[in-house]
Design a protein around this nucleic acid. Structure first.
Lengths: 209, 209
DNA sequence: GATAAACTACCGACCGTTCGGTAGCTGTGG
DNA sequence: CCACAGCTACCGAACGGTCGGTAGTTTATC
């Protein structure tokens, strides 16, 4: 029956995303090669072999984790490009807030170094990550700036340079917080809010006509 | 005899650094966990077991690679902090040039993602990397800016923010070039010189009194 | 009874590492 | 001058272990 098929599909999907969710946490904790299928199985309360009922391979599972990982960030970006009740400068401020939040606090940003780790053996993954996430981030930022230019609030920048100075510090901050996590209090070493505010000021200054 | 002892030591040291050099290339090519002792052995024209004559473990070899990797960069930084025949603004420009060169073109920058990869299982490495390399980079930049402030050429910045917006884009550029290396022409996707020039302008503007 | 979902048991490949041993060079004592 | 000890550099073989993945079977659900 169609309804039953649908039901089991839904249940299977739910289990799948549950597994993806748990696996993502493990990957973030221990890296890709540092996480074995046995680890994943134990964490999911499942035997190793049962995994291959849901995913063809460890690689496929990881790719699913990444894509599922940046989905909520993409939603946030979509919301962002619609907020039109603000000053252009405020919109930009808000956009950078969201980018920091996405990259530093959610899974996506923390997944980036893992994607770098496996990029050699999974070139399709880096490609998708770029096309479906990085490019979208850039486009969202560009749209906001373009609107500001049209209204005379910003001057037209070299967009490549803009992406460079907007995303660069954010990505590096996220990476540093991963790398040096065990060296002391993260908020002391890398005080996100202060860095963000200083960063925003410089970006806005650079766009001021 | 003392001279002979010295000689064999020198020869052994030379062989060691030769191995480190080859191993670094392999690690950069295929990541830490992607490079097996067998790979390393083959590349060095040595049998796997012979490795343990020179290094206690794969980890120790990798740590040696990292430390050897950033040594020349430290030299460049040392030279940098002595160049006093330039304008303060020119000194800063030159410093950023060198930082780009170090991070994008030499081994150090490309090693950073690998250090991130192993940072969980080798916390002492991230610690050393931070203390002996990152901190030195920051201090060098700070010294140059401080000199500029004393001469009235710059205004005093929030140094954490300065490091954030100077090193952030550079590190991310290097990381991106690794991650997306197989997606097309790197100089088209990430035009280092143009990005660098735009970046420099923004940094200098941010320091202008 | 068909099907999905889980299991047990196992595989071959490969991992980093260790062990015992050897070829060849060097400095020393008779 | 030569036999011997000691040393460096290296190797073949194997170690215990882990890896991702598979075959075949049982259990639960409709």
């Amino acid at each position: 029956m169609a309804t039953n098929e649908k039901n089991t599909e839904v249940i299977a999907d739910a289990r799948r995303s549950e597994i993806i969710h748990i696996a993502t946490k493990l990957f973030l904790d221990k890296g890709f090669s540092g996480t074995s299928m046995a680890d994943l199985a134990e964490a999911c309360g499942i035997k190793k072999a049962s995994f291959y009922h849901y995913f063809r391979s460890k690689d496929e599972l990881f790719i699913s984790c990444v894509i599922t990982g940046y989905a909520p960030a993409l939603d946030e970006l979509r919301v962002l490009s619609r907020a039109e009740d603000l000053t252009h400068e405020d919109r930009l401020h808000h956009a950078i807030d969201v980018l920091y939040d996405i990259t530093v606090n959610s899974d996506v940003g923390r997944l980036s170094p893992l994607i770098a780790e496996v990029s050699r053996k999974m070139p399709e993954l880096s490609q998708r990550f770029y096309a479906e996430y990085i490019a979208v981030q850039r486009q969202t930022l560009k749209a906001i700036v373009e609107a500001g230019i049209a209204a005379g609030a910003f001057k037209r920048p070299d967009y490549d340079v803009l992406y460079h100075i907007v995303f660069g510090p954010i990505v590096t901050l996220s990476l540093s917080r991963e790398m040096f996590a065990e060296m002391g209090d993260l908020e002391t070493m890398f005080p996100t809010c202060r860095l963000k505010d200083g960063h925003k000021k410089i970006v806005v200054d650079a766009l001021r006509p």
